[in-house]
Amino acid sequence: MNEMEASQATVSGTVSIKNRQGLHARPADRFVRLALSFDASVTIVKDNQQVDGKSILNLLTLGAEQGTQLEIRTSGTDAEQALAALTALVNSGFDED
């Protein structure tokens, strides 16, 4: 795999929202701040909806409640690290409950 291919690589994983209040403003804020720290682009998919994971407003339009399944797709040089970090954050329940 050359460098070009590596930068194009897309990885994805599915997470489930654990905290009771769902993906509301504060968790979304933390999620976006973390996403922004990576070069990789971050896309969140819920059912048919697909939004930019670096946009808090778009993330909030998903209205993701406790138990909602979300697919995280990252793409770019640090895609793997981004996916791992974001998945861990969601699984931690955003340290909320």
Binding site: A25, R26, A28, V32, I56, L57
Partner: peptide
Amino acid sequence: GAIFSAQLQMLCDPQL
């Protein structure tokens, strides 16, 4: 204070 942090994030939202 975090309430305002989320609002700041919204204001600076790149899509917006």
